[in-house]
């Protein structure tokens, strides 16, 4: 996005490296989220997750551990899945897609449909992260990206038939489900992959 990006540094740093005593602890940030542009002045400490939840009322991405260990905050940045709790919003200049942006108006994304059809959740807290993660995971597999369990000689998992339960479990290991709905999560993803 041409209009996405952050400035601020420009206010605290001058060409040639002139030192300023008090660098501005805030930045002007322009974020492209689910197709909409949001322009905000944020404390540089604000994570993408807190920006979504506390500043933009997009509470789909969840705060679980806030340390990149649980995956509940997973969103897509530039089409790649990341932990939004470990991304400072000021560093973010690619379009963001959250769980709120996956459906096509009132038509759910195929992975959302599959999670409902397969009852792939219990409490639902991890579900937005699971689904965002799975959307990107299927793109990675389609692009032939290997995983830890892919034999070295094999070209990734471009063919959906190669996306075995073992592959799905490994590729989804960054998303913890404390209810233990894993069996149905794997089924739902495998169904959506076909």
């Amino acid at each position: 996005m041409d209009d996405a990006g952050a400035t601020s540094g420009s206010r605290t740093f001058r060409e040639g490296g002139t030192e300023e005593r008090h660098p501005d602890p805030t930045s002007f940030v322009s974020l492209r989220i689910n197709g909409n542009t949001h322009e905000l002045r944020l404390d540089n400490r604000t994570t993408l997750l807190d920006t979504l939840r506390e500043h933009l009322d997009l509470t789909g991405a969840k705060k679980g551990c806030d340390h990149g260990q649980c995956g509940a905050c997973t969103v897509l940045v530039g089409g790649r899945r990341i932990n939004s709790c470990l991304v400072l919003a000021v560093t973010c200049d690619e379009p963001v897609t959250t769980i709120e942006g996956l459906a096509d108006h009132d038509r759910l994304h195929p992975l959302q449909e599959a999670f409902v059809a397969r009852d792939a959740l219990q409490c639902g807290y991890c579900t937005p992260g699971q689904i965002c993660s799975a959307v990107a995971m299927l793109d990675e597999a389609a692009a032939g990206h290997p995983s830890h369990v892919t034999p070295p000689g094999r070209p990734g998992a471009g063919d959906p038939e190669l996306l075995t339960p073992e592959e799905i479990r490994e590729r989804m290991s960054g998303n913890i489900c404390r209810c233990g709905a894993y069996a149905n999560i794997v089924d739902a993803i495998q169904e959506a992959a076909r």
Binding site: G68, G71, T74, R80, R81, I82, N83, L86, V87, S133, A136, M137, E140, A143, G144, H145, P146, S147, H148, T150, P152, G156, R171, M172, S173, G174, N175
Partner: peptide, 27 residues
């Protein structure tokens, strides 16, 4: 995922894929 890394430096590709999670490796 780089083809040259996977084919010529297999240990490097395997080590990277054994580390962290997909979300963390993307960042």
């Amino acid at each position: 995922a780089h083809p040259l890394v996977r084919t010529r430096y297999t240990a490097l590709s395997q080590a990277l894929l054994a580390g962290a999670s997909a979300q963390l490796r993307n960042a």
